[in-house]
C-alpha cells in the first residue's frame, strides 16, 4: 500500500465503521424495544404467578395438619366398628371410589347402613370416628328409633376421611 493510499483506505474504513455504527443503532432501535416489551410481559406474568402460588397454598395448612395428625396408615371405619362395638350386627357398607388427593392421600367416603343396632354401639362408633387421627367425619346421620325407649335404632351413616394407599396397592375400596 502506498503512503498516499493510506488516508483513502482510512477514510473508507471510517465510513464503513460509521455505517456499521449507524446500522447497528437502527437494528438496536428496532430490536431492543421488542425485547423490553417481552421482558415487561414476562415480569408481569411472574408477578401474576405469585398470586397463583397463593391460591396453590390455600389448602396447604389442611394437608400439613393431615400430615401432622397421622404417622401411619389410618384405621378403616369397619375395623374401628369391630373394635368399639364387637357385638353389633355387621352393617351394610357402601364405599365410594377413592379420590386421589396429594402426596399419596386419598379421599374416602363410606356409607354404613345398620338395620338394627344398639344405640350405645352406635354412639361408641361415632365417638371413635370423631376422635380418630385422622378423623372419620360423620357428614350425614340418619337414625330412626326402633323401640319406645330408643335403645335400638335403624341408622345410616356417611363417613368421610382420608387414607393413604399402601405402597404397591391399587386404588380401590
Amino acid at each position: 500500500m502506498s503512503p498516499g493510499s493510506q488516508p483513502a483506505v482510512l477514510r473508507w474504513l471510517a465510513a464503513a465503521a460509521a455505517a456499521a455504527g449507524l446500522g447497528c443503532t437502527l437494528w438496536a432501535a428496532r430490536a431492543v424495544p421488542a425485547h423490553l416489551v417481552r421482558i415487561d410481559r414476562r415480569e408481569a406474568d411472574l408477578r401474576s404467578l405469585a398470586n397463583v402460588e397463593n391460591d396453590a397454598r390455600a389448602l396447604a395448612p389442611y394437608l400439613a395438619a393431615l400430615t401432622a395428625a397421622t404417622g401411619g396408615i389410618a384405621e378403616t371405619p369397619e375395623a374401628m366398628l369391630r373394635r368399639v362395638a364387637p357385638g353389633a350386627a355387621a352393617p351394610t357398607v357402601a364405599a365410594a371410589a377413592p379420590e386421589p388427593l396429594d402426596d399419596g392421600w386419598r379421599f374416602r367416603r363410606y356409607t354404613f347402613s345398620f338395620a338394627d343396632v344398639p344405640v350405645d354401639s352406635l354412639s361408641a362408633f361415632l365417638a371413635a370416628c370423631d376422635t380418630a387421627r385422622p378423623p372419620w367425619r360423620a357428614a350425614q346421620v340418619r337414625i330412626q328409633a326402633l323401640d319406645p325407649g330408643s335403645t335400638r335404632a335403624r341408622a345410616a351413616l356417611t363417613l368421610e376421611g382420608v387414607d393413604r394407599a399402601e405402597p404397591g396397592a391399587k386404588d380401590g375400596p
Binding site: 396453590a56 390455600a58 389442611y62 379421599f107 370423631d130 360423620a138
Partner: peptide, 24 residues
Amino acid sequence: AVTRRNTALAPVASLFEPSAVPRL
C-alpha cells in the same frame, strides 16, 4: 394446574368442618 389441584383437594377442607357428632 393450580385450579385443577385445588378442585381435587377441595374435599380435604371439608374434613376440617365440624362433623355431625357434636350436634347429635
